[in-house]
Simulated scan of single mutants.
Amino acid sequence: MNEEYIPAIITASVAFLAAVIAQFISYFLSEKRSRRNEYFDKYERFVAPYVNEVLIFYKTETNYDHLSDVITDLDINNLVMNINENKKYSNTRLLECFFEIEENKYFSDYRGDTENRLLVKMLFWYLDYSNNIMKKLPQGKGINMTLQIREHQKLFGIWYMLMELDVPYSKAIDFMRLDFYFKSFLSDRVNLKALRKMMLISPDKKTKDYIGFFLWMISNVEVEMNKNSMEQYERTVFFELEQRFLNSLERINYLENKKR
C-alpha cells in the first residue's frame, strides 16, 4: 500500500468510528428519554391519581381509635374500580389480582373474607408497582412519598399474610392498629425484596413459613412491648395471635409426623 494513502485511511476510519459512536450515543439517549417519558406517563395516569388514596385507606381503616378519629371512611370500592379501569398501564402481577377480584364475584365464599384478602393483596402489588415507577423518575427515589409507599407496602404485606393464615378481617385490623409497635422492626429487619418473595411462596409452603415469620416478628415486638407501658387490650391482641399461630404450628407438625 502506498504510504501516502495511510493518513487518509486513518482519517476516514476515525471519522467512521466517531460517526458510529455518535449514532450509538444518540440512540442510547433517545431510548433513555423514551423510557423516562413512558415512566412519567404511567406515573401521571396510574400512580399519581390513586396512590394517595391507597395510603389514606390504610391509615383510616387501621386507625387506632377509628370511631373517634376518622370523620369519613374512604370509598375503597370506587378506588378499586378506578384503578381497574386503568389497568392497561399495570403489570402482570396486578392483572392477576384484578382477575382474582373479578372471578371471586361469581363464587360462594366458603373460606370467608376472600374479598377483603384479595383487596389487600392487590393494594400491596399496586404499591409495589408505584414504588418501581417512582424510583425511575428524576429524584423520585429518596423523596418522602416514595418512602411512604415503601413503608405502607410492607404493612399491606403483613396485613395480607395475616388474612392468608385465615385470621378474620376484624382480628387482622386489631393487629394492624398496633403497627406503631412493629414499624421500626419492619424498617430495620424486613426488606421489600424478602417480603415480595414471601408473597409469592407456593401454597403448600405458605402456611408454615408465614407462621414462622409472625412468631419471629412477635418475639421481637415483645421486647419493645416490655420497654413501654401497654394497655391490656394491646397485650391481648399480640398474645392471642401468638397462641393461635403456636397452636396452628403444633397441628401442622403433628400432621406431618403422622404422614411419615
Rank of each mutant, 00 (worst) to 15 (best):
I158P: 06
K193S: 15
M163K: 07
K205Y: 07
Q243Y: 08
S184I: 09
T146Q: 15
I252M: 02
L215T: 04
N247C: 12
D174C: 08
I173F: 00
D188W: 10
F182H: 09
L137W: 11
K205S: 07
N220A: 02
R177I: 10
F175E: 00
S187I: 04
L195Q: 03
Q243N: 04
W216N: 14
I149L: 05
V167F: 08
M176A: 12
L178W: 03
S219Y: 03
F182Q: 11
L200S: 08
S202Q: 13
K183T: 08
K206T: 00
Q148S: 10
N191E: 13
F213T: 13
L255C: 02
V167L: 09
F214W: 05
G157L: 00
E256P: 01
R177G: 15
V167I: 12
N253Q: 01
T146V: 09
K208Q: 14
M230A: 07
F213S: 03
E234I: 09
N191A: 03
K258G: 01
L192P: 03
F156K: 09
N247V: 06
M163V: 04
E240K: 10
Q139R: 08
E250P: 05
L215W: 12
A194Q: 07
Y181D: 02
L137K: 12
L195P: 11
L246S: 05
K227G: 00
F185V: 10
R244K: 07
W159P: 08
F239N: 12
D166C: 04
R235H: 06
M225I: 13
M217A: 13
K258W: 01
E151V: 14
M199W: 10
F213Y: 15
L255Q: 01
Y233A: 11
L186V: 03
W216H: 05
F239M: 06
I158Q: 14
D188C: 03
W159I: 15
I252F: 04
G212T: 06
I252A: 13
D166F: 03
N253L: 03
S170R: 08
N228D: 06
F213D: 01
L186E: 07
A194E: 10
F238T: 12
P168K: 13
K136C: 01
F180T: 10
Q232E: 14
I149Y: 12
I252K: 10
K154V: 00
I201Q: 08
Y169C: 05
F182R: 06
V237D: 01
P168Y: 02
L249G: 07
L246C: 08
S219A: 04
L192W: 05
M134G: 10
L155K: 15
D204K: 14
V190Y: 13
